[in-house]
Write a protein that binds this DNA or RNA. Sequence first.
DNA 1: CAAATCCATCACAAATACCGATATTCTCTA
DNA 2: TAGAGAATATCGGTATTTGTGATGGATTTG
Lengths: 296, 296
Amino acid sequence: MIGSLTLDQLRVLVTIADVGSFSAAGRKLGRVQSAISQTISTLEDIQGVSLFERSGYRPILTDTGRVLVEQARLVLASAARFEGVAKGVRMGLEPELVIAIDPLVPSAPFIESLSALSLAFPNLPVSFSTEGLGGSLRRLRNDSTAIGICLLLPAVPDDITAYPLLRVRMQAVVAPGHPLARLGRAATQIDLEPHVQLVLSDPIDPGSANFGLASVRFWRFVDLGRRLDFLLGGFGWCRMPEHLVSTLIRDGRLVPLCIENDPTPEEGLTIYAAHTRNRPLGQAGQWLLDDLRRRL
Amino acid sequence: MIGSLTLDQLRVLVTIADVGSFSAAGRKLGRVQSAISQTISTLEDIQGVSLFERSGYRPILTDTGRVLVEQARLVLASAARFEGVAKGVRMGLEPELVIAIDPLVPSAPFIESLSALSLAFPNLPVSFSTEGLGGSLRRLRNDSTAIGICLLLPAVPDDITAYPLLRVRMQAVVAPGHPLARLGRAATQIDLEPHVQLVLSDPIDPGSANFGLASVRFWRFVDLGRRLDFLLGGFGWCRMPEHLVSTLIRDGRLVPLCIENDPTPEEGLTIYAAHTRNRPLGQAGQWLLDDLRRRL
DNA sequence: CAAATCCATCACAAATACCGATATTCTCTA
DNA sequence: TAGAGAATATCGGTATTTGTGATGGATTTG
């Protein structure tokens, strides 16, 4: 036998635990008492454990029974989730919502929307991917994500529908021990050139998305956190989103770097919520998009 | 009908997903192909969704099907835990192991023993309680805990058998505003289940990384840093390496969460592992005690 | 002490799940 | 391009599972 455990057995078990007796459980479940009794009996039999102490007037849960009731609740909750997802699909929801977020995008502004989302669609499986610059766009075109929260440089591509959400200001920074930190004036192209620039790049297509390159020597990183390690270690300079470095600057662990004729827009880079034109958002995706636009 | 979803249907579904065809699933499950076909047919019918695309030679999972297969795996895993607990009991194990730890108890070396415990008894539900100084002792005398890890001042009472030990660590954490942060005792699976767990997963094969899943609801992340953002935002709980969260904990931006296999006390005096004389330890409890004494 | 409630057991009936055969569609190879 | 092999849906018959209803023993309640 593959496995003879039945959800029905578990439903009966927890119902008994809830209402306190076999008979009452029978009434609640619309079955005769003997059916309940037999169901529990076969459950005990197959699992080889004793769930109830039958010596008294009404059966009481054994220690084992108590624990297994809790386990059963988990199984049933899980099963309910299965049915919940199915129901969502039946009512027009997408089966899951995949969200891709580029690494430079701050999470904070999205958390409220997302917790509202999980309230509005409690059974919707949500997944996130953050996998390097350009990852969101690639996944959008892949159809492996429904929504991308990303930069779109130099411009919004034709096949993408995008809504601007917010801007992140970028700040060039360097560790205090680095030569550029002691410059004492705005850095020119000449100043920057000899030093290593720590750039984020698309892991799949390292040649793309290299905006704001100023140095000749650069090291590529896919992971923002790892780049930060190297930055703090005085390995080179780079631009970082302001929200990630402001406390580090305040603590003196990083020094802001002023660049002459910096091509990076003063008001910051625009973060878009995007989806592909040819695959419209599902109900939940649309909801999230609307909510984001309303909030931001 | 109370609920007509069947574990058998789910077993059939995931088997098909694994082996790739109805016929092969039938062979694997020892059933005729038509039985498989009918099972899936009724499952689709009852849930009101289309799981397979039947136009081709062999049915292929729809998007909905793919998601529901993952959900089904979770349900089956949960069911397997149920049966695992039952099996443990059948083989003489205690149905659960309750461990009480006093709040002042430091905690370094417990984690190795406990992860060894969860390896030796993978389905044993373990719960921790921490509820004030003297709580362990009270629970021991209550018979509501099997083992107490506690201070015993001024001396070991007569009714208690106690062995002096030392310390441990690994970190489940949650933001201060999260409900789990206000639990006030060790979290059991039942406590965790309703809350979102923030899990790291393989972006290529999101189904693979389901180790350590305790909640039924979880959001997947590829990126550790982004997960941390959501964690700090109070979105859910997760386990984090201690070196990454210790400063956050110090800042009060995170709260450590004591759960089943991850106890997290701090510094203290002489710590004993204790149990009452008149209720000898079960198999797993004895195992844990021996392991602790061997290591410390 | 009587009435009511609860549970286990048993035989029978109903539901349901499986099997085997068949028709059809698709893939792969000669 | 034809033919063999394999996959699936459908259908009727059978077998197994599951629920019913009645009965008897035990406990609580008033």
